[in-house]
Write a protein that binds this DNA or RNA. Sequence first.
DNA 1: CAGAATCCGCCATGATACTG
DNA 2: CAGTATCATGGCGGATTCTG
Lengths: 134, 134
Amino acid sequence: MAGYQKIMKKEISKKCENDRDDCPVKDVLNRVGDKWSMLTVIMLSDHGTLRFNELHRLIDGISQRMLTVTLKTLEADGLLKRKMYQQIPPKVEYTLTSLGESLVVPLMTLYDWANAHMPAIKAARAKFGKAAAT
Amino acid sequence: MAGYQKIMKKEISKKCENDRDDCPVKDVLNRVGDKWSMLTVIMLSDHGTLRFNELHRLIDGISQRMLTVTLKTLEADGLLKRKMYQQIPPKVEYTLTSLGESLVVPLMTLYDWANAHMPAIKAARAKFGKAAAT
DNA sequence: CAGAATCCGCCATGATACTG
DNA sequence: CAGTATCATGGCGGATTCTG
C-alpha cells in the first residue's frame, strides 16, 4: 500500500477515536447512510431543479413525511436550497447548492466501487450462506 | 459540470429507479451508512490484523453484541476474513480482505469531503437554527 | 400543491447474563 | 477470550388525516 494512503488512514482512525461526538466522518456518514438523503441528492443532481411532488414521484417508495423530513435536513445542512413561490396553488422548488453538488463527487466514487465489486460481494454472500447451511 | 460526470449521474438515478431491490448503490450505502461497519473497516485497515477484544477496545462505544453482528456481516460480504485458532483460551483474528481494503479508497474520498466541507455544513446548520428561531 | 400533525408498529441497538 | 442468548427500548419511518 502507498505510504500516502497509510498516513491518511492513520488520520481517519485518529479522528474517530478521539472526538467521538464531533467526528466529521461519523457525522457525514450519518447523512450518507440515511435511507433517503443520498437518493434525493442524486435525483436533484440529475434533474437540476425539482418540485416537491416531482421528487415524490422520482424517489420510488418514499413517503410524504420522509420526503419532507429529508428535504428539511438537507436544507439545514446547506446541501440544497428551497425556493417558495407565494401563490395558489403553492409551488416549491428544490435545487442543490454548490455544496450539495460537491458531495456528488465522493458519491460517484462510492458508486463506482459498488458497481465494480458488487459481483464479488454477492459471490461472497452466496458462499457464506452455503457454508453456514452446511 | 463535466460531461463525464453528467453521464455517470444519469446512470446512478437510472439504476436506482429501476431495480429498487437490487440497486448496488443502495446495497453498499446500507453498509456504509451502518453505524459501526465503516469504523470497523477503518480500524482494520489501520492496524492490519486485530483480535476480537482489540477491536472492542479500539471501536469506542460498540457493544459486544454489535461487534459480533458487524463482524459477521462484513465477513459474509467478503470484506474481512476471520481466522480462528483452536486453543484455550480462544483466539480469533480479523483481517481485511483485498476487497475490504479496496473499499477504503472511496471511503477516503468521503473522508476528505467531510473534512473539507464540515465547516460549511456547521455554518449552514447554525444559520438555519437561527432562522427557525426567529 | 406542499406540506403539518398525529398515531403506531417494528426493528436496530443496547444492556445484561451466561458459556465453551 | 470470544462469543451466544435473552430481554428491554427508543426512535425511525409508514399510514393516515387535515390544512392554507
